[in-house]
Amino acid sequence: MSLLQEEKIKSELEKKFSLDILGFEIQRERRIWLEVKKEKAVEIMAYMKNKLDFNHISAISGMDMGDNLGAIYHLVQTGIVANIVVETPLSNPRLDTITEIFMGAEYYERELEDMYGIKINGLPNGRRYPLSEDFPKDQYPLRKNWDQKKFEASAKACSYEEAEKNSGDEEKI
């Protein structure tokens, strides 16, 4: 069990972004965990893609950590998964889009918007995913304080016409 490759990635990244990487852990072979500042996240990921060959994004997992909302970007370099944890305050959750680096991340980012209410700056307009058009816009089901029963008791489904109006431009093309 050698961690040569992982160590190399660690040293490269720490050399370049020593101040912006808040934590670095090699969990086991082929699994790296990083915690980075959210302002620098896009820059770090671009660097990882262009210089370190992390050219695939597997997923973005949202997380509710209490005071903060988090997103974990799972980047992959043939076999090695780098899990980049980015946190953003619950009061004003905002992250920058990475669709310019990874085109495949669009749906993952929409999911963050829908399920956690993290506003993604720069995400192109489009239909929401995965929630339906008539789902209330201020409800974020995957947040820990979201309760299905409470929601059902209070929510009033919007009408069909309203949903039509709310739906993205893309549908009408």
Binding site: M115, P130, P141, E152, A153, A155, A157, Y160
Partner: peptide, 11 residues
């Protein structure tokens, strides 16, 4: 994702 219990949330 998301359990929708039909009765009240759908139109």
């Amino acid at each position: 994702s998301l359990v929708l219990d039909g009765e009240k949330t759908s139109s």
